[in-house]
Amino acid sequence: MSVSLNTVHWSRLAKKALQGDLLTQEEALSVLQADDEEVLPILQAAFQVRKHFYGKKVKLNMIINAKSGLCPEDCGYCSQSIVSNAPIEKYAFLDKETLIAGAREAQNRQAGTYCIVASGRGPTERELEQVIEAVREIRETMPLKICACLGILKPEQAARLKEAGVHRYNHNVNTSRSNYGQITSTHTYDQRVETVEAAKQAGLSPCSGVIIGMGETDEEIVEMAVALRSIDADSIPVNFLNAIPGTPLENRGRTPAMKALKVLALFRFICPSKEIRVAGGREKNLRTLQPLALYAANSIFVGDYLTTPGQEVTLDHQMIEDLGFEIEQCAL
């Protein structure tokens, strides 16, 4: 089904979002199922919401893959999982010096947030201490916000990360509750939500997002956006599946660029004041339409992802400049 609606409809959704009202199921589906020629009016409406909260600023984030592969979880999308045969580099947790060097590179790329990400179910005591030691030194010497993504987290671990100077904790819900069993069996949707709640209770800024393109329905995409609004995640990475050869989802097709733009607009309407980040799969799924994503989203990753390459950093900087937008400077 595709829906053709006039500009007044999209403007009304923007007004509703700015008032803090939740879109109805019908309104949300009208965004995802609109005709492709409606994309520019939809983005114009989404931009009114984005501009209200973030102006023309774009937040840059950089990931370091602190531990690669060696993961006992069976997440079907992930090249690092136990069920993956993808030919990736595998290594144990990086040492403190390497994590600190990564922070310096984040600064060079003009990233305001440095994301320390590790594969695995959750951090060991030794891994947690390595992160804590690195974070303390980074915070003493560099004006960076630190986001940690270390898997399922216990409340006392969250408290220790907060005390060390970690600003944000990421644990994605990835898909809808109703689709979760199709993606992984070694942990539950509720365990992911509980980790986000533990981070919030410790005073960490909660970050949780999704991966689009894993067999979910439009109704389930709406379900994801509403769930993240309920969780009250401050930052929402919207990933688009990069189907990696050797993973269970290797044969999934890419999300069409126009559909990806509608998804980003929907998340802006449903979570209007939150950081919406175009994350993994941006380059493969949006392709030449990447700049349009920033009319709904206000944040991107620069550089490579965990095991897949990203766009060359100077091209991201040029994209932002050519749009007439500006890189947000880190304010601790």
Rank of each mutant, 00 (worst) to 15 (best):
M1E: 10
V3R: 14
H9E: 13
S11D: 13
K16H: 11
L18D: 13
D21F: 03
L23D: 14
E27C: 05
A34I: 04
E38I: 01
P41F: 07
H52A: 07
Y54S: 07
K56C: 06
K57T: 15
N61R: 12
I63Q: 05
N65H: 14
S68W: 12
N85R: 09
E89R: 04
A92I: 00
A92R: 15
L94K: 02
L99N: 00
Q110I: 07
Q110M: 08
I116P: 00
R121L: 11
E127A: 05
E133G: 01
E137C: 03
I138K: 00
P143V: 05
L144N: 11
I152Y: 10
R160S: 14
Q182M: 10
T188G: 12
Q191N: 12
Q191A: 09
V196S: 13
A199Q: 07
K200C: 05
Q201E: 15
M214Q: 13
I221E: 05
I221S: 03
A233N: 08
N239S: 05
A243F: 09
I244R: 01
E250Y: 10
C271T: 09
P272A: 02
V278W: 01
T288C: 05
T288F: 09
Y295N: 08
S299I: 00
L315S: 12
D316L: 04
D316K: 06
D322Y: 15
L323C: 06
